[in-house]
Amino acid sequence: MYKILFVVPMIAAALSLTPAYASGDAKCENTSGEWLSHEAIGAKAAELGYEVRKVETDDSCYEVYALDENGGRVEIYMHPVTGAVVKLETKS
C-alpha cells in the first residue's frame, strides 16, 4: 500500500530531471565557426522590415523574435555568417 508513495515521487523526480530539448529544426552550415554580432543580425532583420524584439542563438542559427509589417508575431532563423533567412515561422 505504501509502495505508491515511493514510486510516484520517483517518477516525478525522473521526469523533472529529463533535459529539455532545444527547439527549432533550422540548420545553418557554418564551417568558419565565426558569428556576426547580435546587433548586426538585428540590423539585417530590421532592414527586411521587421520590428526586432530579441536576438538569440538556437543551435547553429540565430533566432530573431520580431513583428512583421502587419504586426504579426514571427520567429526568423538567420544564418550566423551571411545573415540570410533560413526559416521563417509565423505564429498565428
Partner: peptide, 9 residues
C-alpha cells in the same frame, strides 16, 4: 504570445 510582450525578455 501577445504582440505587446512577444520576445520581451
Amino acid at each position: 504570445i501577445t504582440t505587446t510582450f512577444w520576445g520581451i525578455k
